[in-house]
């Protein structure tokens, strides 16, 4: 059994320690907001927070999450009103929306480290893929959230 703390709740899951965190979250804990995109840590759709730092979960062994504080998009804010979530709505960022959980988690980690990022800070840090091409609005929404 593997013990995990996800979004403030404790879980015990009966999986092999090498099972990837993404599939434990999605298929076992049914936290499907974290998405599969590439499986090779490029696209970032699977981004979660591990002790507050952005982490791609698709190639991460679930055992690496033991004893850490795991946050998924569902746990970013209990009411869905994190400044980034509000900014995402205000700027009407998502199109298909599939990558946006990962984008928001990545942006949340960025703002924790750098509360007032410049355009180039954002461009340097946010390297998740959005095939719909919402990048311009993502940048605007991060600035809006940073303003509080």
């Amino acid at each position: 059994m593997i013990s995990l703390n996800v979004n403030g709740k404790n879980y015990s899951v009966n999986v092999d320690p090498g099972t990837k965190m993404l599939w434990v979250l999605r298929d076992i804990l049914q936290l499907t907001g974290t998405k599969y995109g590439c499986g090779i840590e490029i696209c970032g759709a699977c981004t979660i927070l591990l002790d507050g730092e952005a982490q791609k979960s698709c190639d991460m062994d679930v055992s690496e999450g033991v004893g850490r504080k795991i946050t998924t998009i569902e746990g970013l804010s209990p009411t869905g009103t994190h400044p980034l979530q509000k900014a995402w709505i205000e700027e009407q960022v998502p199109q298909c929306g599939y990558c946006q959980s990962g984008m928001i988690m990545k942006a949340a980690a960025l703002l924790q480290q750098n509360p007032n990022p410049s355009d180039s800070d954002i461009d340097g840090e946010i390297d998740n893929i959005c095939v719909c091409g919402t990048y311009q609005r993502i940048r605007a929404a991060i600035h809006l959230a940073a303003k509080g």
Binding site: K35, Y36, E74, G80, W88, Q92, P94
Partner: peptide
């Protein structure tokens, strides 16, 4: 107007085919 499908796409509650 603000699109009605967007809030669910910011909090993980939107259900795609894969979900």
């Amino acid at each position: 107007v603000k699109r009605t499908d967007i809030p669910a796409k910011t909090n993980g509650s939107a259900i795609y085919g894969i979900d």
